[in-house]
Amino acid sequence: MRPPLVLVVAAMAVPSGFYRPLVREIESRGWQARALPNRGFERGEPVASRRDDWSYDDEIRAIAEAVATARAEDPGRPVILLGHSLGAQLVAGHQIHHDPADGFVTVGASVPHFRSYPYGGLPVLLMGLAVPVATRVRGFLPQPFFGAPGARTLMREWARFVRSGRPPYDVPHRVRTPTLVVQLQGDTYAVSHSNKIFTDMMIEPSAVTRWVYAKDATPVGGTTHHVRWVRTPAPVVDRVVDWWEGVASPA
């Protein structure tokens, strides 16, 4: 099988340019990669406002368009979607409701339900309660709120996810395509319990390969921090390549 194209779907409020080290590392293995634009956080592009708004469904449809474009450009090349944090939630929605990509990698994925966090999840619950109020007043989520400047509809959907534990889209069936779940050890945003809930809710057990990126496996200067792992991504890319070679090779 030909080397795949990896489309990176960003975490909340993280611009696509942040993923340049990850894209370079993937391409150093002879694969292709690109980070998809993160609406509202790209330089020179409109940010969320009372007039500019979008939803989970809008973002999922943008992923579907990117996958369709990639396949039209090179029909014989497999497409892998790598979803980071919120990006993993969006990719799961894509894989369930659209023609799925050939593979799915999650990094720092979670069901952000407040009850899945330590100490009763009170700080997370407070965010889930504050978002509807702030977006009603301003028409979008303003700084200094987490995820700001955030689109009114998407952030309200996320806040309901936090409060209820129910995703902002139907899950008539779980993801069936091969999926590598990367849990970052010590991740305080996607804690182990919330990551397990995400995996059990969204992905068929037979499709899952799970890997815990341990702190003692990081390179010099590296970290398993929820966001900063991207700066030194070689161990994650190593694992992705090994996993895909196992998926793509004949039994």
Rank of each mutant, 00 (worst) to 15 (best):
M1S: 14
L5M: 13
A10G: 14
A10H: 13
A13C: 01
P15H: 11
P21S: 05
R24K: 13
E27N: 10
S28Q: 10
G30A: 02
W31P: 08
W31A: 05
A33M: 07
A35T: 09
F41N: 13
F41C: 05
E42M: 06
R43W: 12
R43S: 12
R43Q: 14
G44C: 05
V47H: 07
A48F: 03
A48T: 08
D53G: 07
D57E: 15
E59Q: 15
A62K: 09
A64N: 10
D74L: 08
P75K: 06
R77M: 04
I80A: 14
I80W: 14
I80M: 15
L81M: 06
H84I: 00
S85E: 03
G87N: 07
A88L: 12
A88W: 11
Q89N: 15
L90G: 06
A92F: 05
G93T: 08
H94I: 07
H94P: 03
A101C: 03
D102P: 03
V105A: 08
A109P: 05
A109G: 05
S110C: 11
V111E: 07
V111N: 15
V111Y: 01
F114D: 00
R115E: 09
Y117R: 02
G120V: 09
P123Q: 04
A130I: 00
P132D: 05
V133S: 07
V137R: 15
G139V: 11
F140P: 03
Q143M: 13
Q143T: 13
Q143S: 14
Q143G: 15
G147L: 02
A148M: 04
A151Q: 06
R152Q: 10
T153V: 13
E157G: 01
W158M: 12
V162D: 03
S164C: 07
S164M: 09
G165A: 08
Y169S: 10
D170H: 13
D170K: 14
V175A: 01
T177V: 15
T179Q: 02
L180I: 09
D187L: 02
Y189I: 12
A190C: 10
H193T: 14
K196P: 00
I197W: 10
F198Q: 03
D200V: 12
M202P: 02
M202Y: 12
M202W: 06
I203Q: 01
E204R: 10
P205G: 12
S206W: 11
T209C: 08
R210V: 06
V212F: 14
V212K: 15
K215A: 13
K215C: 00
T223S: 14
H225R: 02
R228M: 11
A234Y: 11
P235R: 12
V236N: 08
V240E: 03
W243E: 05
A248V: 10
A251M: 01
